[in-house]
């Protein structure tokens, strides 16, 4: 049954590790701004140009 004591200790240590990570994240400012990253993630690194689409349309019309 001693194994249970070890397990409890291990589980607490793991949980404390996560708590520590959380405290570090808050202090590092990761919780300061929750809304801007939601915009940032939507950008492609090299977004396709809107104007390309337009010129494509023009081309296809010209082809017809």
């Amino acid at each position: 049954m001693n194994i249970l004591i070890v397990l409890i200790v291990v589980s607490l240590v793991v949980a404390l590790g996560f708590l520590g990570a959380f405290i570090w994240a808050v202090k590092a400012g990761q919780f300061d701004d929750a809304s801007t990253p939601s915009y940032r993630m939507l950008w492609d690194d090299t977004p396709t140009q809107k104007s390309d689409k337009k010129t494509n349309n023009v081309k296809s019309i010209n082809n017809k």
């Binding site: 808050v26 400012g29 919780f31 300061d32």
Partner: peptide
Amino acid sequence: NPYRRIWL
């Protein structure tokens, strides 16, 4: 940030 404390 004033929110940091309450987050912690």
